[in-house]
C-alpha cells in the first residue's frame, strides 16, 4: 500500500490537524507515514495544506507528482490542487463552502457538506475537518476507523473528553455522510 494525500483549506480549518490524525493513526497500526506541511509565504497567506504519505513499506519521498486523494476544504484549494489528483484518484470537496464543481472527469469526486454536517452533529463547524476525515475514511479505507478514533482521542486529550466526543461524533457523521447521500457524480 502506498497512499499519497493532499489536504488543503483555509488556515484555521484544521487541515494540518487532519493530516496529523491520519499519520498518527497510521503509526498506531505500525504503518509508515510522513506528514509534510506547506510552510513559508503561502502559510501566511491564509491557505494551508499538508501532504500525507502512508505506506506498508519504507517511505521514500514525502512529496509526489500526483496524489491518490486531494481533500479541498475551500475553493482556492480545489482550484490549486484538483490537477494533482492522479487519474482514477479521489477528490473530496467541502460542498458547504465550495460552490463550484471540479473540471476533472477522470477522478471520483465527492461533494460533502462538511460544515453543515459538523454544525448539525456537533453544534459547531469547527469539526468540519474531522467530518471530512470520516468521509475520506469511508471512501479510501486505508486505515482502520478505530485507529483514527484513537488518534482523535490522543490529539484532543489536552482539550478534554467533551472535545474528544464531539470529534468522534463528527468522524462517525463523516463516514455516514458517504453511506447516506454523497455520490460520486456531482
Amino acid at each position: 500500500m502506498l497512499e499519497e494525500t493532499i489536504l488543503a483549506g483555509f488556515g484555521g480549518q484544521g487541515v494540518l490537524m487532519m493530516g496529523k490524525l491520519l499519520a498518527q493513526a497510521a503509526m498506531e497500526e505500525g504503518t509508515s507515514a510522513t506528514w509534510l506541511p506547506s510552510y513559508g509565504p503561502e502559510m501566511r497567506g491564509g491557505t494551508a495544506n499538508c501532504i500525507v504519505v502512508l505506506s506498508d513499506d519504507e517511505i521514500g519521498s514525502p512529496v509526489s507528482e500526483q496524489y491518490d486523494t486531494v481533500v479541498a476544504m475551500n475553493q482556492p484549494s480545489l482550484e490549486k490542487f484538483e490537477s494533482k489528483v492522479r487519474p482514477g484518484g479521489t477528490l473530496l470537496i467541502n460542498k458547504s463552502i465550495v460552490p463550484i464543481k471540479t473540471s476533472r472527469n477522470d477522478v471520483d469526486a465527492y461533494y460533502i457538506e462538511a460544515n453543515d454536517i459538523a454544525e448539525n452533529e456537533c453544534g459547531t463547524n469547527r469539526s468540519a475537518n474531522v467530518v471530512m476525515l470520516g468521509a475520506l475514511q469511508c471512501i479510501r479505507q486505508k486505515l482502520k476507523p478505530e485507529s483514527i478514533e484513537k488518534a482523535i482521542a490522543y490529539a484532543f486529550e489536552a482539550k478534554g473528553q467533551k472535545v474528544i466526543d464531539a470529534n468522534l461524533k463528527a468522524f462517525a457523521a463523516g463516514m455516514n455522510a458517504i453511506d447516506a447521500k454523497a455520490t460520486a457524480a456531482p
Binding site: 496529523k20 509508515s32 509534510l36 514525502p62
Partner: peptide, 10 residues
C-alpha cells in the same frame, strides 16, 4: 533541510 525540519514521522 527544510523538508526534514518541517515533516513529521513516527
Amino acid at each position: 533541510d527544510g523538508v526534514l525540519g518541517a515533516m513529521m514521522e513516527p
